[in-house]
Nucleic acid binder design. Structure first.
Lengths: 340, 340
DNA sequence: TTGAAAGCGCTAACAG
DNA sequence: CTGTTAGCGCTTTCAA
């Protein structure tokens, strides 16, 4: 019945309706304080009446901004990132920005695709959660504001946010000691990984501080996957004696450890206490629930987004590197040593 | 040392360099077939030399398109969605589109925010994974191409993609029967939920087909959370006799079931077999690994994205509703009935 | 096949 | 405080 072609109202429709200039409408909307309360009211009324919504493409072209941020992840099916992304997303959306997520899988082809995207001026800023830059040195000249988080990027000078990995690992190990455990194992992540490096250091800090002997026989290695945790379990089982407790560099490996041990009839935590790191979604859901280190993930995302927005607004941030404290979460996978 | 201010090269820089008009450059890039091989080569050379990358905002303004799609999720920290998103993302990126993810948490305020976003012309299409529309009826007049997936939207006529829920649930139940189980329990999802409805129907189909009596005493209810699965375990434990097997409407509840049962000394699968639905990331990681129904999640995402792109291109899709088959994944949480 | 020119919708000088 | 005006970078008639 309504045959008018529904062309979208533009700013000049609003101006016409309100009997003023487009410039004033634009100001009333973007910088209300530069306009009398009266005009503002009229404009708002007109906007509502006509159903006007600004065309972002036009605004972007004009202002040479996009109000869009790109977050680069190595793997967004990794549950670890979801809460961080929420922090990012909420902060950004509250400030009128939108977020595009690049799931690169560390695949150079995909990275190049997104690099192109950045160069095309489609984003105002970049959040790097993947531990490396995706722009080549030459492309980097374009200098899009960038913040890295979680995993530090070697040889890069981006502002950076991460958890206090070393200190947290120390705390967890100290907690295991406080439970009365003497022989505390550790499952390493990939030895080239920055996080593994920090956490392993924290583990050793705690041993030193407790005057416990660092014993290489208690150390195994994995690659952050559950399977590698299971392999580590096998490795421990093949040794003459099981540790009292084992601290895995991340939760997936802790889960693998539990599963591998259970399969061999060793029960957790009765026979051996297990702890992880990250508090991923399923750490609590696991059977048994896993004692772990909870990173302030949401907060990491929020802070990183805020920092990036500051950068975009041209304010240089006070600190270029922020370390956020984490929290121990004690669950059933750890228990006091038998006082036999 | 390089003091030239790095203004981004525009199409007219390319034109000047190549000694031709901007129109021809534009054509050489967008519709190469409308230009001689020779000019094309020159243009490409110029583009490379100058490092030209088209400004998308300008293109969008001119063409009134954005090459951006919005995916609306109720909760993107829900691992179930990650693989679907991958299918979507890969398909879209391959076609030169980018993806924005709206994490609404079913919060009307957030939904409104994104509705505004859509209306502002920032997206060419919408993918609804949240089981409801986020545009009001009136806003809907704007008619942005839309496809729904996973959860059907009541009273909406969007093209839709989902898993054959009913048939899959029937298969799983039949499998449990084939294992020799007679008393097969079922943990329901929220009774108003479409998925629960279908799966419950499939469960009953299988019983009927196997001439097993449908027994209300074997049915409990939950809300898809792990905690509700634990509560269901309690409910079963308080009954005079445990079922031989229990089929939960999703994996989280299956996990809760296992944990609740284990805590009471009932071992899975020895004492009772447990099956779930979805094959979320951690179904395999669980202790024990969970027998479940694996939806073709990546494919669901791909098909939905393709369908949406068709819609955007103005091709009406052949089918408005696609049901994809799922697959049974047998793991250690189910085992044959003791042939005592 | 190519070029000239208009204009997408908006914002930001600048002038009043 | 408000209006006039130019133009962001691109695509797309229209004419040559």
């Amino acid at each position: 019945m309504d045959q008018r072609l529904p062309r979208k109202p533009t700013i000049s429709d609003v101006a016409r309706w309100a009997g003023i200039s487009t410039a004033t409408v634009s100001r009333a909307l973007a910088t209300p304080e530069k306009v009398t309360a009266c005009t503002r009211a009229i404009v708002l009324e007109a906007v509502r009446k006509i159903g006007y919504v600004p065309n972002l493409a036009a605004r972007n072209l004009r202002t040479n901004k996009t109000r869009t941020i790109l977050a680069v992840l190595p793997d967004f099916s990794n549950v670890f990132f979801s809460r961080i992304l929420r922090g990012i997303s909420d902060t950004l959306v509250a400030r009128g920005y939108s977020l595009i997520i690049a799931d690169t899988r560390n695949d150079p082809a995909r990275e190049a695709q997104y690099a192109e995207f950045i160069l095309a001026g489609r984003v105002d800023g970049i959040l790097l959660l993947n531990g490396r830059s995706i722009l080549t040195r030459r492309q980097g000249r374009a200098a899009v504001p960038t913040v890295s988080l979680c995993e530090r990027i070697p040889n890069a000078r981006f502002p950076h946010i991460e958890t206090e990995n070393r200190e947290s690992a120390r705390m967890m190990t100290a907690y295991l000691v406080s439970l009365g455990h003497k022989n505390i194992g550790y499952v390493r992540g990939p030895i080239t990984n920055v996080l593994e490096h920090e956490r392993f250091a924290g583990y050793k800090d705690a041993l030193l501080h407790s005057r416990l002997q660092y014993n290489p026989a208690l150390i195994t290695s994995g690659d952050f996957t559950l399977e590698s945790g299971e392999a580590a379990a096998e490795a421990y089982l093949s040794k003459p004696k099981l540790p009292d407790a084992i601290f895995a560099c991340n939760d997936e490996m802790a889960m693998g450890l539990i599963r591998g041990l259970s399969a061999a009839g060793v029960t957790v935590p009765c026979d051996v206490s297990i702890a992880g790191f990250d508090d991923i979604e399923f750490a609590e859901a696991y059977n048994p629930p896993i004692t772990t280190v909870r990173q302030a993930r949401r907060q990491i995302g929020e802070r990183a987004a805020e920092l990036l927005l500051q950068l975009i607004d041209g304010d240089l941030p006070a600190e270029r590197e922020i370390k956020l404290a984490a929290e121990l979460v004690i669950r059933k996978s750890t228990v006091s040593a038998r006082t036999s």
